[in-house]
């Protein structure tokens, strides 16, 4: 079903006009969202719509509130002004169909549980009956290329494997939305490219909506349907970039495409301006 939704969305997108009028109501909606902490304004007047199945990347100089927006969708942080809604409901608390992948995989995995045990944690949390767990675990680990490592502890895995494991655990929740907070920032370039492609393959297959925070502009363009550029002091949406690049994307063809280079230049200039 979700695959079909995505394909439908693509068809809507191709003409490039009047999407708002035809598309269904957005899945996640920020309305004039602000956040004050101790008299300091962290976020001011953010309005943002994210459609189901969309991959949205958020970039901006440090301190512009990228992670804060993500934590608002997660229900970890409540805005002090405006509303954040998910399917029309306020995001008051974490929900099982919203999964998070943190950058610091070393801290976010249970070190005393094996790879299989870490995936099991999410299955236990959503209440999947015990007999059904092993098959789901095996399937998820295989999906992320960890099939042979089910009994390894995180300490015995490389950074890339640990991050794959964290993604497997997030997918175990069968999320509608995947929130990713600089998930590949600590990985080496090769591993990062592999994981980018695998992530795109998985979320496209399953029609998962992705909210992806990154400071890597090329990564943002490569992954996203749309890149949101934030400006700091206080954090606010400064620009949106529609990425019209064809899918599936390719680490060579996409990155050498003139549109990619044009977008890259635009984003670079935006960040430079936002930082100064």
């Amino acid at each position: 079903m979700s695959v079909r939704v995505r394909q439908a969305k693509r068809r809507f997108e191709t003409p490039g006009v009047a999407i708002e009028a035809i598309a269904p109501a957005p899945l996640i909606r920020f309305r004039q969202v602000g956040l004050d902490i101790g008299g300091r304004t962290i976020i001011d007047g953010v309005s943002l719509d994210i459609r189901g199945g969309e991959v949205v990347c958020v970039v901006g100089p440090s301190g512009c509130g990228k992670t804060t927006l993500l934590r608002m969708i997660a229900g970890f942080v409540q805005p002090t002004a405006g509303t954040v809604t998910f399917n029309g409901q306020p995001t008051a608390a974490p929900r099982p169909d919203v999964a998070i992948v943190f950058q610091d995989y070393g801290k976010a995995l249970l070190p005393w549980r094996t790879a299989a045990g870490n995936v099991a944690l999410a299955l236990e949390a959503i209440g999947l009956p015990k007999p059904q767990r092993p098959a789901r675990i095996a399937e998820l680990l295989a999906l992320l290329g960890l099939g042979g490592h089910a009994d390894k502890y995180p300490a015995a895995m490389s950074g890339g494997m640990q991050q794959r494991l964290q993604i497997a655990r997030a997918l175990a929740q069968e999320p509608t939305v995947l929130l990713m907070d600089e998930p590949f920032g600590a990985l080496d370039a090769m591993t990062r490219q592999h994981l980018q492609d695998e992530l795109l393959r998985i979320v496209t297959d399953r029609g998962i909506t992705v909210f992806f925070v990154t400071h890597d502009l090329e990564e943002a363009i490569y992954l996203a349907d749309r890149v949101i550029g934030l400006a700091p002091n206080p954090g606010r949406v400064a620009r949106e970039f529609d990425i019209g690049l064809a899918r599936p994307r390719d680490q060579l063809a996409t990155i050498e495409h003139p549109d990619f280079l044009r977008l890259r230049r635009a984003l670079f200039e935006f960040i430079k301006a936002a930082e100064s």
Binding site: F76, P96, A99, I100, K107, A108, E124
Partner: peptide, 27 residues
Amino acid sequence: VEPRLLEVAHALGMPRRRVIRDIALPS
């Protein structure tokens, strides 16, 4: 306990009893 793990538990909607048993005591 690593605060990140408590966030993971929170995001998974784990009840307090389970957080103690599966996160706090093992760590």
